[in-house]
Amino acid sequence: MKIFRTLSEKPWIPHPAGSEFLAKNYQKEIFIGRTALRFFISVVSVIFFLFTITFLTRSQFPDFQALAGEPWQPLSDASHLWLNTGALLISSIALHWAHVSARKNQLNGAIASVMIGAFFALLFLLGQILVWKQLIELGYYVASNPANSYFYLYTSVHGLHLLGGLFALAYVTLQLMKKNSLVTFSSSVRLCAVYWHFLLILWLFLFALLTSSTDTINIIAQLCGF
């Protein structure tokens, strides 16, 4: 483990092993961006982890009624959510493709992929809003049951993160127009793609959690000790 080797260095001895420190891998923008993104993804993961802890705790109170399980419950038929998931998946793949095209120096391919990625991300957000509308029409308001509250909370916080990602993507694309450097664009859009993959995985997790039946949630909660 590198971290333990680092922590066991003895800096007071005049020429420790670490003095060979050459900033080879360091101090390039790509590494800076990658480090920052890793920390940011950790922060977002912690946020959703904590939401989930509260979700599992709250689910053990008697008034909690999961949104799926029985046929009359709205998310038992999750076809809309599956469509949205498909849109997010396409968006994620498109951004990855944008990175690959930029690396191969294909400007048109890169631009087209970014546009497709952004379009499907927006489609996903729109789809989520439609699901909200559907739920409201069925009488599943935000405050009528904690499961509903969590559905709206999870989807909106997740959506806001995707929206933030779209702003970053727009910035990256504008930089490309301004500086016309595909090399920079390739590394920046790669960060966007990684963030998108993260949001996709996060969404798959939320999707599974929110469409679980009461029994499944109870089992998970018991496994976690609630």
């Binding site: 680092t6 260095e9 800096p11 670490g18 900033a23 590494f31 800076i32 480090t35 920052a36 920390f39």
Partner: peptide
């Protein structure tokens, strides 16, 4: 915070190991 940790990890000058 993202700035501080990234700066410490990625912008140290030559010879500045973590343990220095």
């Amino acid at each position: 915070g993202l700035n501080y940790v990234t700066t410490v990890l990625q912008a140290r000058t030559k010879g500045m190991t973590l343990m220095r």
